[in-house]
Amino acid sequence: MTQWERFLDTFFNAAVLAKYTPAILQGVWVTVWLSVLIVLAGIGLGVALAVIRSFGWRLASFAIVVFADVMRAVPPLVLILIVFFGLPNAGIFLSSFFVLFVVLALVLAAFAEEIVWAGITSVDKGQWEAARSTGLGFGQSLAFVVLPQALRMGIPPLTNRAIAITKMTALGTVIGVPDILNQATTAQSFSGNASPLMLAAVVYVALFLPLVILSRWLENRFAWRKA
């Protein structure tokens, strides 16, 4: 075999690819499904926490800040291992899918809370004053005037963060979630060939490249125009 043929055989072996493509496609389903759940739950919770924080109740705000700081300072893989290996010994049994979902959703929530909160605090004070001067209450001013602007400012960083964290669904491999990477590494060790890994990489690029390009576009689109 020439060098080139060996390369092709190692990374683009048609027989191996044909055999393991269905398994990897199943992995795609798991990865996509997990990602959607994580983004919805994570951003939803993050926005809710930022809103609660804006009411300025000391104890609640303190708890939210501690939560957000811890979730942003500790690597997600560390959190995943703690929950996955620790809870069963403490008598709590959760599926690896559920552990991955909960941990990544909480991590995304922490970042989303910080982004939305930064947005809320950077909305001009005059916006609050204008809203309150027309008789809107605090909650109404927040909901109809301030939060829409905060969210809009937060769209580019939120998109970037959501992409970075949904990419971390690959960490599920470590605890046995049958996602794309997991299927590929299993296939690789069965077949003794690197083609499944190559396929996994290609699938990830196919899934995430459009999102990365979308985030680039959003960044230009939502570059905040001050009125």
């Binding site: 001009d124 004053e129 204008a130 809203a131 309150r132 027309t134 008789g135 809107l136 209450g137 602007q149």
Partner: peptide
């Protein structure tokens, strides 16, 4: 306060229109 503020209109130096 919200009831009384409806009866007092206010116009600001920086306009403070809602940009969205």
């Amino acid at each position: 306060l919200n009831a009384i503020r409806q009866r007092i209109g206010m116009v600001f130096q920086a306009f403070n229109l809602y940009p969205h």
